[in-house]
Design a protein around this nucleic acid. Structure first.
Lengths: 168, 168
DNA sequence: TCCGTACCCTTGGAAGTCCTAGTATATTGC
DNA sequence: GCAATATACTAGGACTTCCAAGGGTACGGA
């Protein structure tokens, strides 16, 4: 999409902020922008690894979640809550995964409102392969030093908790 | 979209990774997932602030970039490179901003292939208001401690540089 | 019993991202 | 000068996300 820029655009932005008298918020602005950009880079790496397997990140996340579910099945609203995405996004992902034969919908035994989603054998196999690929190609080569990983987990964990992600 | 979960889903995922014998990549996996989620939270905050102004984040970024351009105008390919998004995304954003009367397209004086984009007076005013709102409501209340901001900037800066974002 | 409220999922629409292709203009090499 | 290559933008399609609205089901109080 683009070759390396001669200058860091986020450092430039920070400089612009300071030049306009917003020095008090320039650093957090830069940090937030850097998080946005980092997410973009990581997502691109992940999608590159998943593409040959016919998966997108959204669909992989759902497969992975199901593969760890004790009972092997999850209500859609549970999946929505755990993945922290809108229910319609889950509907969308399940539609496509179901069409690809990787998951199946079934009615909840006692609650007629609820739909359960479950991995097919094929879905379970693909989830394993996708996780192995991501472990090898992305998570195992993140480029973050061990110390930095721990620090990120602490800082971002505090942030998410303060944002109301979890109460734990 | 959801009330706080009783447990941190990312910590759960890390636990699942360790339980399956992928302990060597569990921490980076968790850190990467945390970056994804943090971006999602921050983007939602930003969009909430921009919505009353009739802007999305993508359009705001373009307005802000133009407002800092010395000449007041930028070729679309330059904007694409600096914002680090696909050229078609810039076309999309410019289409909508132009329709809203916030930017204008004009032909490049010497290169017939390139299109220049420029802020209208209205666009310049709105960019100022939007930046003020973001500074007050998002960047000024990021929730990150000053030390953590500096650390984030270093770690993510190293990462982006290693990923080939800039050569500086 | 039955009505209202709460909850679960789906549909349709708007927005963003990227990709692939296509058109038009520059530039380079022969 | 002209053909071949490179560059700039745009069109159409796939995907994800969210919101708003609607239909179905469950449950609790009158």
């Amino acid at each position: 999409m683009g070759s390396p820029l001669p200058r860091d655009p986020i450092a430039e932005a920070r400089h612009n902020w300071e030049r306009h008298g917003w020095g008090d918020v320039a650093a957090p602005m830069a940090a937030i922008t850097a998080i946005m950009r980092t997410q973009q880079i990581l997502l691109a790496r992940i999608e590159t690894v998943l593409k040959p397997l016919g998966l997108t990140f959204a669909r992989y996340e759902l497969l992975a979640l199901l593969s760890f579910a004790r009972s092997g099945a999850l209500p859609m609203n549970k999946a929505s809550a755990l993945l922290q995405v809108h229910p319609t996004s889950v509907t969308n992902a399940v539609d496509r995964l179901e069409h690809a034969g990787l998951v199946a919908r079934s009615p909840h035994p006692t609650d007629g409102r609820t739909t359960l989603i479950e991995l097919t054998a094929e879905g379970r196999t693909l989830a394993k392969r996708a996780t192995a690929a991501l472990n090898a190609e992305v998570f195992g080569k993140s480029g973050f030093a061990d110390d930095d990983v721990e620090h990120l987990l602490r800082v971002l964990g505090d942030f998410r908790k303060a944002a109301g992600d979890f109460t734990d």
